[in-house]
Structures are given as C-alpha cells and as structure tokens.
Amino acid sequence: MGAEGARVSIFSEAWAWLGEPDRWSWTDPAGIPYRTIQHLEFSALALVVAAALAIPPALWLAHYRRGAFLSSTVVNLGRAIPSFGLIILFWYLASRWELNTSFWPLLVALVALALPPLFTNTYAGVVSVEPDAVDAARGSGYRERQIMFGIELPLALPVILAGARVAFLQLVATVAIGAIVNDGGGLGRYIVDGFAQGRGGYGEILAGGVAVIVLALVCEGVFTLITRLAVPKGLHVENARQPQVL
C-alpha cells in the first residue's frame, strides 16, 4: 500500500472508530463525552488548586514590591521543566510511598505546571497597576488589604486571566500525556490505547489526537469569552497596551 493509500486507510479507520457503539455515550468509559468530562475535571481541579497556591502570595509580594527575582525565577523554571518528566517523577515517588498512583502523580504534576504562569502573571499584573490609583485609595483611607483586593486585584484581572488561560491550555495538553500513568486519562486514553494496539490502533490515535486539539480550541474560546465578560471594557483597552508575561 502506498503512502496515499495508508493515509486514506487511517482516516477511514478513524471514521469507523468514531461510529462504534457507545462512542458518544456520556456514561460509558468508551464514550468521547465521558472522557471529555473526565479530561476537563482533572484540568479544572489542577487549575483551582494552583490558583489557590499561586495568586495570594503573588498578590502580596507584588503589592509590597518584593520578590521580583522570585517571579522571574519561577517563570524560567516553569519553561525549563518538562511536563512528562514531572509526571514520571511524581509517579515514581507515589509508588515508593504507596500512594494512589492513578491520581496523585498526575494531579501534583499538573499543579506544578500551572503555578508559574499564574504566579508571574499575577505579580506582573499587580505591579503594572497605576501608582496614582493606589495612592488615591490610600488617601481615601483604604487599608492595605482593601487596596490589594479592591483595587489592585480587579485592575490586574486581565493579565491574571491571561495567565490562567495559558495554564489551562497547558493542563489540557498534559492530561492527555498523563494517560500513560493514569487509569482515566481523559481523551489521552484513546491515544495510549491506540499505541498499545500497534498498527490496528492508528485510527483511534488519530481520532483521540483530533479530540484533544478540538477541546483545546474550545477552551481557548471559552477563556476569551470569560475575559470579555469578567473584565470591564476600559480595562480591555488598557490591557491591550501592556505586554503580557506569558
């Protein structure tokens, strides 16, 4: 079979795989909707945990203009550490400590990957707030805590949401890789199972890969919509003039 014939065969196999029974079930583990929800649940959980760990300290440090070196170090570490390496490392540690290797290794790795963009964008967003706005709040009798949560955090929201968008898209991609060590694995389960079948699983690999890409694009669109709804129009204009960290 020539190259053209092989391509046609793979596409036809993927189409046939998509038409199998229960492939679009919300309750059967073989169903794409079921795996999509599983994929999003893991990604969203990791993003929430990472946001709870990263945003408060970044907000405090930026308010008091401390930790600039820490912020740059965090983003550089985040870019240097490979996601797959983190997953394997935490899987090894969980197996040594007799923890649940199908849940904790992937979750901890995902949180570690989401921390840098959330931390650095929060720091950069707060630091970029106009000093006049902060000075006016202090002059009006605002306490430092009120300034942080009532002035700086809302004004830094566009940059923070940009960091959350980058983090979430990275999480969606990494959950698929994590199917190697995770019994669930979301949509990545199809890719891993397809490789396990050899040549007969190429159609499943292709369909699973396309499903992950479509999910990432949908998430990108949802985050864009959230940003437009959550951020006042005036801040959209101001944010467009400022470079984003990630």
Rank of each mutant, 00 (worst) to 15 (best):
S43C: 12
R23W: 08
P82Q: 02
A167E: 05
R23F: 08
A44G: 15
W97Y: 01
V192I: 09
F90G: 01
R23T: 14
V192Q: 12
R228E: 14
P33I: 10
R189S: 07
A109T: 08
A114E: 08
L155A: 04
A164D: 12
G19H: 14
W60F: 04
L206Q: 13
L99Y: 04
V218P: 14
Y202M: 15
G19W: 12
A94W: 03
R143D: 07
P29M: 00
M148D: 01
L235H: 08
T27R: 10
G139R: 03
P105T: 03
L113D: 03
T227W: 09
L217K: 11
G67E: 09
E130I: 07
R23A: 15
V159G: 03
R189Q: 05
A46Y: 01
Y64T: 13
F119Q: 04
Q242F: 00
G178F: 01
M148K: 00
V108C: 06
R143M: 06
G201N: 04
R145K: 02
S140H: 06
S128I: 04
Q146W: 06
G208F: 01
L187C: 06
A216V: 14
A173I: 12
L217C: 08
T174R: 06
S72N: 10
R189T: 09
I88K: 03
V134M: 10
W24N: 10
M148A: 02
W17I: 12
G19D: 15
G2V: 11
G185H: 02
L107F: 04
I226M: 01
Y92T: 12
T227K: 12
S43R: 09
P243L: 00
A133K: 09
G185E: 07
S72G: 08
L110G: 06
I37D: 15
A54F: 03
V212D: 05
E130S: 15
W91M: 13
Y202S: 15
D22I: 08
R241H: 02
Q38Y: 10
G5E: 13
L99W: 02
G186I: 00
F149T: 13
P158R: 00
A68E: 03
G67W: 06
F84T: 05
A207P: 08
G188N: 04
E238W: 00
V8W: 07
G194V: 05
